[in-house]
């Protein structure tokens, strides 16, 4: 249990998706003009991560990784399908996002209004695919571990985008050199925030 807690905290702060790996930067920069929409997008990313990473873990564990097919018959234990993982992961993510959109629309129009517009954006958000690929690369040993990792990185992403949106709302009132306005200052702000998050290193 202690180990899972450690993984959770580490994936939120130390290995933050945005500040350490720059994953999901596109939507991070595009959808951070105000706090409420960024909260919606952050929640949607969290939600999709928590669902797709464990599913991809199961697929990777039972179908794709070297020797994973041994449970079907011993002859297949030599088969290594891991080169297919990228295409399988992206297909799983795209279809789950589509599925979620339909389910949410059906069961709760309130949630759909809050998250719905962001869901199509998420299929091509690198943070989602990135989490699945990191899960594969780091060889997580159980589904609990991949679930914890997904939840942690989702929350980390949420914290990052909400904090950034809040800063950006204030930046509007400051007097920045003209060529630096907009995109330039956003990058520099993110860089400074990332420096702050580096303080968690070695925790």
């Amino acid at each position: 249990m202690e180990f899972l807690g450690d993984l959770f905290i580490r994936s939120i702060f130390v290995e933050n998706m945005i500040f350490a790996y720059f994953l999901g930067m596109c939507s991070y920069l595009a959808v951070s003009k105000n706090v409420n929409t960024s909260l919606g997008l952050g929640a949607a990313v969290c939600f999709v991560l928590v669902i797709t990473v464990p599913i991809n873990y199961l697929i990777n564990h039972y179908l794709l990784k070297p020797g994973a097919l041994a449970w079907i018959s011993p002859q297949l234990s030599e088969v290594n399908l891991s080169f297919l993982s990228l295409i399988v992961f992206i297909a799983v993510i795209a279809s789950i996002v589509q599925l979620l959109e339909m389910i949410i629309e059906r069961i709760s129009s309130q949630l759909y209004n809050a998250l719905g517009i962001f869901l199509p954006l998420i299929a091509v958000n690198c943070a989602i695919l990135g989490a699945s690929l990191f899960m594969q690369e780091r060889n997580f040993s159980s589904i609990g571990e991949s679930f914890t990792y997904a939840a942690g990185s989702g929350i980390g992403w949420l914290i990052a985008i909400v904090a950034f949106a809040a800063i950006r709302e204030r930046i509007r009132y400051s007097n920045i050199p003209k060529p630096l306005r907009g995109l330039g200052i956003s990058y520099i702000t993110t860089g400074l925030m990332a420096l702050g998050f580096m303080a968690f290193l070695g925790m």
Binding site: F19, A20, Y21, F22, L180, G184, I185, S186, Y187, I188, T190, G191, L192, A194, L195, M198
Partner: peptide
């Protein structure tokens, strides 16, 4: 990592 962002900003 942070310096990559700041460099792009510059």
């Amino acid at each position: 990592p942070p310096m990559a962002l700041i460099l792009i900003g510059v």
